[in-house]
Design a protein around this nucleic acid. Structure first.
Lengths: 212, 212
DNA sequence: ACCTGAACACCGTTCAAGT
DNA sequence: ACCTGAACACCGTTCAAGT
């Protein structure tokens, strides 16, 4: 059939199909991806340079979905705003937890991702975080969210109860709800702990610099 | 030459050689690994079931190195103890940051890893964390450390200064030290924020439950 | 401009043969 | 028990040919 009158493929269509494969099976191959699009593997190279660019397109797709919800809610203040930003970022990954391992070693430059960090920087400044501390704080929040997202990709039983000889740890594992519920509760606790610390950091820093 | 009088290979030797390849190049292939051991690829299968088991052996190797330093220092109290545990875990990965992306999808059962969580559970209990909160807290700390470790595997320039239109974010990126120094400073800040929160959590919880 | 089909080098893994 | 060499199916990628 050679060239169709209208293109069968596009970068977003390819990324969506790849995401569906990863959601279902944890990974994708060029052959399976082409198959699911009703096309030959070599056709994909008319739209992207290769597998790596497909992964990049998937990440952009996921984060753009998350960014949509960002401005939609009324917010009571900067602390609440930071909470919402962090939650929405984690939830974007929570919808497709299995791409996380594919996406971890990368350079951030996609506009959709950058906007997320810009909003975060703004709200942290309103909260009172000093300029020279800003990127350290962003890095901490990034670590927490990425680690929490990673936790979502983990198996339901993160810790094997039978492989410990500690009664204390075994009991804690047994008492905790499984999988997603534990992950969600823990993330909210993490937000409480870190944001509590941030508010105090902002307060003490501004008290110290009030004579400037 | 067929079978040698003494085995040329062993699981630890294979894991070490694979780790050297990953440290140098970010990944390994069975062919390159066999080559670096002076052996044919098929020989590896006499010692492990396949590539996946090699990755597992590498993780165990890295975490055992980190666990060695664990009990060696005198400690002033449980908060300091928790700090040391978290630091040593992150530092184990910091020595081989490039394995982190290979190792992120989990099932914790290796004894070396379990001992780390046992010690953490003990010290958190001494600190005053309630039993029913224990696994949530461990999950938060796990997220922070894993996220911070992931940050170590990232390129020197995590954020591309030129791809943002926010003057605030651009200035923060420009002002921050590059690569490892930013990552280290941010991790220490993360420890301060979370542990501060944990101490307050322990205090308020024990105050609330004092009438039990 | 965009899909195809054949061909490429390379990948992880299996297994009978050898000592 | 442990290394070898040949063979396997599969992988991502290239490119001349077709419209």
């Amino acid at each position: 059939m050679a060239r169709p009158s209208r293109p069968l493929l596009s970068v977003p269509r390819i990324a969506e199909a790849a995401l569906a494969l990863v959601d279902a099976g944890g990974d994708f191959t060029m052959a399976a991806l082409a198959d699911s699009l009703g096309v030959r593997p070599s056709s994909l190279y008319n739209h992207l340079a290769g597998r790596e660019e497909i992964v990049e397109a998937m990440r952009t797709l996921v984060l753009e979905q998350g960014a949509k919800e960002l401005g939609s809610e009324a917010v009571r203040g900067p602390e609440e705003a930071v909470r919402l930003i962090l939650r929405s970022y984690r939830e974007a990954f929570a919808r497709h937890p299995r791409i996380i391992p594919l996406v971890t070693s990368y350079t951030v430059s996609a506009p959709a991702v950058m906007r997320w960090y810009e909003e975060l920087a703004d709200q942290l400044t309103v909260l009172g975080i000093a300029r020279d501390r800003l990127l350290d704080v962003i890095t901490v929040l990034d670590s927490l969210v990425l680690g929490a997202a990673l936790d979502l990709a983990a198996p339901d039983e993160v810790w094997d109860r039978r492989s410990t000889r500690s009664a204390l740890l075994a009991a804690a594992i047994a008492a905790s709800p499984p999988g997603r519920e534990r992950a969600d509760r823990a993330f909210e606790l993490g937000l409480d702990l870190v944001l509590g610390g941030l508010v105090r950091l902002a307060t003490t820093a501004s008290a110290g610099s009030s004579r400037t």
